[in-house]
Amino acid sequence: MKAIVQDAYGTADLLELRDIDRPAPRDDEVLVEVRAAGVDPSVWHLMTGRPLVARVALGVRRPRNPVRGWDGAGRVESVGAKVTAFKPGDEVFGNCDGSFAEFARAKAKRLALKPPSLTFEQAAALPVSGMTALQALSGRSRPAPGDQVLVIGASGGVGSFAVQLAAMYGAVVTGVCGPTGTDLVRSLGATHVLDYTHEDITAGPHRYDVIVDCAGLRPLPLLRRILAPRGTLVMVGGEGGSAFLGGMSRELRAALRSPFVGQNFRNLVSLPRQEDLLTLKNLAEEGKITPAIDRTYPLAEAADAVRHLEKGHPRGKLVLTV
């Protein structure tokens, strides 16, 4: 089968379309014939091995799994001996182990039936970014109707879902994005849209009950300035910071400070959960959320998709078609 393979950490130049053996599902796994795969910052972290501390889990010297990709949607090819929830021919979406390929293994508990109303491309854009946004706006950070919510990086994969979810909960949403994303963010449900290239979002007297920071580049003191006295800041992703810890250095400082101030700081580590996939599936079927897709690329052009991601600020998700 064809797959996008990477033998060493580095740039997108190392991503290679190659013929490899088709994987076989374990007892609790499903083999998915991949039709589409999402491209998001997690792919960049896997590709570069950054921050360096992540290599403990990814592989110290080289990627433990050489096939890139995490989001996927397609048809079930075969199932393991202990899998009863799916059968060959089912259309599914979720977290696959190397989705930049014609076939990929996935644990059955990390898949759900694809919403019939979504294309494979839309379904592939949903799992990682959708679950991250759902978990970011849960618990203490779930806004009440009328709450003021600020989403930084609102035109990106996670941000585009966070805007829709916050608006669905009845919040007054302000989205922060670049000039090319303003129309998209407004169409997703944001009441106010700020272009960070022309406006200082930390200036002025406005305070937000919830801030979801999907960009990860602004210092904590600046974000605290616009956070309500009892507000919640959710830090998503590990962008910026040192080579070793990346954005985790800011998150560690926030975690140490949080017990001593009235404001609440959440360092979000998104976990794949089937119940969240099912929630996203239901919301998509009800028309309450819709994946925003910037553009699609054929599998052979995966490196170009990652380069586009690296340039920053896609308007929604990037997707590979297989």
Rank of each mutant, 00 (worst) to 15 (best):
G10M: 14
R26I: 01
D27R: 12
V32C: 09
V34H: 04
G49I: 06
L52S: 12
V53G: 07
V53Q: 12
L58R: 10
R64T: 06
G69H: 03
K82I: 01
V83S: 01
K87V: 04
D90S: 04
S99E: 05
S99M: 02
S99Y: 11
K107V: 07
K107A: 15
L113E: 02
E121L: 04
Q122G: 11
M131C: 10
T132W: 06
A133M: 04
G139P: 08
V149W: 08
L150A: 12
V158N: 03
A162G: 06
A167N: 03
Y169M: 09
G170Q: 07
A171W: 00
V176Q: 05
G178W: 04
R186F: 03
S187H: 07
L188V: 02
T191I: 00
H192N: 09
Y196I: 00
E199N: 03
D209Y: 02
I211A: 06
I211S: 06
C214N: 13
A215K: 15
L220R: 15
P229V: 09
R230E: 14
V234T: 10
G238M: 12
S242K: 10
A243M: 15
G246H: 15
S249Q: 13
R250P: 04
L252I: 15
R253W: 07
L256F: 10
R257S: 15
N267G: 14
L277F: 08
L280E: 01
K281G: 01
P291V: 00
I293G: 02
I293S: 02
Y297F: 14
L299D: 03
H313M: 02
P314M: 00
R315S: 06
L318S: 07
T321A: 08
V322S: 15
